[in-house]
Amino acid sequence: MACFSWLTSAFLIVYAMSVLMATASVQLTTKTDNPYHPTGGEGSLTPQECPKACDYRCSATSHKKPCLFFCNMCCNKCLCVPSGTYGNKEECPCYNNWKTREGTPKCP
């Protein structure tokens, strides 16, 4: 009987640890590390806020230097950077519609 209660206690401890670990990983994955939270469209940033917003915008790319260069250029003109590391350009029409001579998007 003592063996059964020892096994039951061990199982409950392991189960409780796995539940705690799963809860902790869910909390870590749902927490956003994005320091830039857009407050709304073009003109919502000041030129001083552009580097921080572009650092986050370009954080997931393997081409950091060109991304940061063009993102900061676009941010200084439009005073807006889309949220996230990719997409969401509809939040900033100026940023989205600025094209190169070839017709490709200028802003990352």
Rank of each mutant, 00 (worst) to 15 (best):
K89R: 08
C54E: 00
T29K: 13
K77N: 07
S59M: 11
C78V: 01
C78W: 08
S83E: 11
G41F: 05
G41H: 12
P35Y: 10
K99W: 00
G41M: 03
C67I: 01
P47Y: 07
E102M: 13
C78H: 09
T100A: 01
K52E: 09
R101E: 10
L28P: 00
C58Y: 06
E91G: 08
S44L: 11
K89H: 11
P35V: 09
N88L: 01
N97T: 00
T30C: 05
D55A: 14
K89N: 09
K65N: 06
T85Q: 14
K106V: 04
E91V: 05
S62G: 14
Y86W: 11
K65I: 08
Q48K: 14
C94K: 12
C74Y: 01
T104A: 14
T61G: 03
C75G: 00
T32P: 05
C92H: 08
L79V: 02
D55L: 13
T39E: 11
L68Q: 02
C80M: 03
T104E: 14
C71M: 01
S83G: 09
S59E: 07
F70A: 12
T39H: 11
K106W: 15
L28S: 10
T104Q: 13
T39C: 07
G43T: 00
G84N: 04
C75H: 04
G41N: 11
T39K: 06
K99L: 15
T85S: 07
C67T: 01
C74H: 03
G103N: 00
K77M: 06
F69L: 02
C58H: 02
C94E: 00
R57T: 10
N96S: 14
D33K: 04
K99M: 13
G41Q: 12
S44G: 03
P93G: 07
Y36H: 03
P82T: 03
Q48W: 08
G84R: 06
A60N: 12
K52Q: 14
P35L: 08
P35S: 11
T104D: 13
N72M: 04
M73R: 14
N34Y: 03
Y36M: 11
A60Y: 05
P47D: 13
P47M: 09
P82F: 05
V81C: 03
L68Y: 00
F70E: 10
K106I: 05
C74K: 09
G84Q: 05
N97G: 08
T100E: 14
C75N: 01
E90L: 05
N96W: 10
H37S: 12
D55W: 09
E102A: 15
C92V: 02
E49Q: 04
N34Q: 03
S44C: 11
A60S: 15
C71H: 02
N76T: 13
E90R: 08
L68V: 02
Q48D: 15
C75D: 02
K31R: 14
D55V: 04
T100Q: 14
M73F: 09
A60L: 10
P38D: 13
C67Y: 04
C54Y: 07
C50G: 07
A53C: 06
P51T: 12
C71D: 04
T30Q: 13
S44H: 03
F70T: 08
E90Y: 09
R101W: 14
A60G: 15
A53L: 13
F69D: 05
Y56P: 02
L79D: 04
F70Y: 13
F69I: 03
F70W: 02
C74A: 13
W98K: 12
